[in-house]
Simulated assay, not measured.
Amino acid sequence: MYLVGIDIGKLKHSFCLLEKETGEILVEPVFFKNNRDGFNALLSSFKHLPQKDILIGMEDTGHYNLALLKFLLDRNYQVALINPVATNLTRKMQGGISKNDKLDTLTICDVLASNQRVKSYRISKYSSFDLYEQKQLTREHHNLKEEENQLSNRLQKCIDVVFPEFNSLFKSKYGIVYMNILKEFGSADAIAHADIRTLRKCFDTGRGKHISLTAQELKEAARNSIGFPSSSEATQIKHLVARIELIKEQIAEIDKKIEEFSIQNNSPILSIPGISH
């Protein structure tokens, strides 16, 4: 069995090659670039060896290893992803303290050669890229929802300044009419001085649905509002509404892709009541 230890970097990686049974180092630790020429140079170092006898190991370092991992899996090499904690512990047991890229390639080989019953690595499969895609999509969904909540809180703060009574006029927040009015006018003062025909356009949802509030009632409420006519807050409201609407569109796009992966996986977890895509 031949072991290839690869230490992952951003612009360049390093690797070494040794024989497991004898511990003989066949290729001393050396750097190669993180590009196709570098990857081909890596393969040329052990292309003379039987592919089925080669085990390649690298740390599971997030995203820096993805391009190289796919390159190797595309060529049917067996690749082990190692927990960085295992590499660190092995380095310390060998007396090393600081990280050294070239020497770490040998440490990675030591982890691969370990006879421990519970291995400190897992053999990567091509399906892991689908898992990566799903993780990224759900993380993006989470990040967008957090950003939407932050923007919504800022929006409510601005509304409290320029039109404190605004929310009480609607049964629910963030509907089409609700957002149209904020995006178009941004304050009670602007609504109070608006042309009633322009105001009515904000009530047109284009879906045949109507709300109990009328344009005239909204205009009257704006006239009697105790809100502070702040142009800066009104400008912020218009910007915040536009950003919230954009994020909602992005969340819908992300959720559609998540559902596509979910249908493809056909996981039995979806049979549990309350669990959706």
Rank of each mutant, 00 (worst) to 15 (best):
L218E: 08
E146G: 14
E24Y: 01
N88H: 13
K52M: 10
K173N: 11
T214I: 02
I196N: 09
L55K: 14
S124K: 06
S127F: 09
I254Q: 06
V111G: 06
L218D: 06
I181Q: 14
R223E: 11
E59D: 09
K52V: 09
R139A: 05
N34Q: 12
L55Q: 12
H210Q: 13
G9N: 09
L73F: 09
N224I: 07
L246N: 14
Q78T: 15
S276M: 01
A252N: 12
A192G: 06
L106R: 03
K248C: 11
D7N: 11
L26C: 05
R243A: 13
E259W: 04
N167Q: 12
I196W: 04
D110S: 13
T90S: 14
G38Y: 02
E148C: 09
I244N: 05
N180V: 10
K157N: 15
V162E: 00
Q134I: 07
L55M: 11
G9W: 07
C202Y: 03
L169E: 06
G227P: 09
T138V: 14
I269P: 00
I247N: 09
N143C: 03
L72F: 03
K20Q: 15
L43I: 14
I6N: 01
P229R: 03
V85S: 07
L17K: 06
L81C: 11
